[in-house]
Design a protein around this nucleic acid. Structure first.
Lengths: 236, 236
DNA sequence: AAGTGGTCTAGACCACTCA
DNA sequence: GAGTGGTCTAGACCACTTG
C-alpha cells in the first residue's frame, strides 16, 4: 500500500516523482520509460493511477505516449518548438537562429524582482541575444534568469544560450509561458542591431517562462520586426 | 450495454452527445446537469465513462464541475472572457464595449473562402464593429461569418453582434481560436474611426474562431492601438 | 445526513507496433 | 505472438457542499 506523504492526491505526487526522475537524468531525452504495469508494481499503486499521472505529464509536454510502443521522454527540441511562435505566411513555423551577444551577472532590478519573483539583493544573469531568419536579424532580446536557478551559468560556457538548452543543461523541466504583446518604436540598440530606421515601429514581446514547478525561469523583453512573418497565438 | 455506432471511443461519443444536449438548449447556461450516476444509468454506460466525458467538456470550457455541488453549464460571459485578451498594466482583464457599425451579406471573397473553409459562391455576413475601453475607441474590427451557420442573422436583429452572443442565439458552442498578430500602419478607415494620425502604427489581429466541432465560425481582422493596455498570450 | 464530484483500485478486453 | 498504451467496467471510499 502506498503511503500518503501529503494531502496531495496520489496521482499528483506520482506525476511529480516521475518528473523528478526525468529532470534528474535517470531517464534522458528520447528514452523509453518503464511501462505502466512495472511502474505501478515498483511504486505500489494501481496501474490506473500511474496512467493518470503519465497522461498529465504528456499534457505538460514532458513525455509522449504512443500506443503499442511506449512512453518517451521529450527532446529539448520539441520543447523549443512550443516557444517559437513566428510563422510564415503559409502557417509553417519559421526556422530561426539565435546567437548570444553578451552575458553578465548583476543584482536584480526592481522589475526583475517583480517578474521573476525574486527579492532585493538576488542575483540574475542578463543575456542579450539576437535572432535571425534566413540570415536576416529580426529580433533582439534581453533575457533575465535567476542566478539561483542557474549557478555558474557564465563559467559553464554552454554552446547555446537559448533557455531550452540551458534548462536541459541544468536538468530543469520547463512549464508554461505568459507573454505581453505591445507595439512600440525601436530603441537605439534595436535600430542598430536590426538595421532599422529611427522610430520604426516594432513588436514588443515581454514574456516569462516558468519551470514545471511554477518557478519563473526567464523574463525576456524583445523587440522585433516581422519581415513577412506573423506571430501566432492560440486561445481555447 | 451501449451500442457502438462508430469507431470513436465511447467517451468521445458521449462527450458529443452531451454537448449536443447543451447546444440544443435542453440544458441552458447556468443549469446544473444531472449527476454522473443518473447520466450513466440513463445512457447505459459506467460512471467512469461519463466522468471522463464530463472532464473533457470541462477542459473545453463547456461546463464547470464543482465538488459537492454539481456540473454547471457555462455562461456565454465566461466564454467571452476566453477571447478578450486585452489586459491592463496590472494584468487584470480590460473591460471593453463593442458596438456594431454595419452588417451586410455578401458572396465570400477568396480569402474568406480560405479562412472560413467555404467554397466559391457561399454567402457570408460581414460585420464591422468598434471596441472601446473607458469610453475611448481603440479597435476597429471586420468580422466575416458563414451565412450557413447563422441563417437570417440580419433579420433576427440581435441585441449584440459579438460572436459570443450570436453563438448563444444560434445554440452553437464555441471552441478554439487561432490568431495571427502583425504590426502595420493604420488604414484610412481605422484612422478615422479611432481618431489616429495617418500612418500611425497599429497592432493587426487576424483571428479565426471555430465551433466546438472545428467548423470556422468567425474570421476577424482588427486594427488596434493599446492605450496603455497590452495583449496577452499564453503558451504551454 | 444526503448528495455531489474526486480518488483509487482491480481486472477485462481492445488497438497498435514490432520482431 | 508478445508487449505496449487505450478503453471500459464495477465498486469502494474520500472530500466538499448544502439543508
Amino acid at each position: 500500500m502506498p503511503e500518503r506523504f501529503s494531502i496531495q492526491p496520489l496521482y499528483l505526487q506520482l506525476r511529480d516523482a516521475l518528473a523528478e526522475r526525468i529532470a534528474s537524468g535517470e531517464w534522458k531525452s528520447g528514452d523509453i520509460i518503464p511501462n505502466e504495469v512495472d511502474l505501478a508494481r515498483e511504486l505500489g499503486v494501481s496501474q490506473g493511477t500511474v496512467r493518470r499521472s503519465l497522461d498529465l505529464l504528456e499534457s505538460e509536454h514532458v513525455v509522449t505516449r504512443r500506443q503499442g510502443r511506449g512512453t518517451f521522454v521529450n527532446d529539448p527540441d520539441s520543447q523549443a518548438y512550443r516557444f517559437n511562435n513566428f510563422r510564415l505566411a503559409n502557417g509553417a513555423a519559421a526556422p530561426t537562429d539565435a546567437s548570444t551577444l553578451d552575458i553578465v551577472m548583476a543584482e536584480a532590478s526592481d522589475s526583475e524582482c517583480a517578474r521573476l519573483q525574486l527579492i532585493t539583493g538576488d542575483q540574475v544573469y542578463r543575456i542579450s541575444r539576437i535572432r535571425s531568419h534566413l540570415g536576416r536579424a529580426f529580433m533582439i532580446e534581453g533575457a533575465s534568469l535567476p542566478a539561483a536557478l542557474f549557478p555558474q551559468l557564465v563559467e559553464r560556457a554552454l554552446q547555446s544560450h537559448r533557455l531550452v538548452e540551458i534548462a536541459q543543461a541544468y536538468s530543469l523541466l520547463l512549464g508554461n509561458a505568459e507573454e505581453r504583446i505591445l507595439i512600440g518604436t525601436c530603441s537605439p540598440l534595436a535600430a542598430e542591431a536590426l538595421n532599422l530606421a529611427q522610430g520604426r515601429p516594432v513588436l514588443i514581446l515581454d514574456r516569462v517562462i516558468k519551470t514545471r514547478n511554477g518557478r519563473p525561469a526567464e523574463w525576456r523583453r524583445a523587440e522585433c520586426v516581422l519581415n513577412g512573418m506573423h506571430y501566432k497565438a492560440h486561445f481555447g
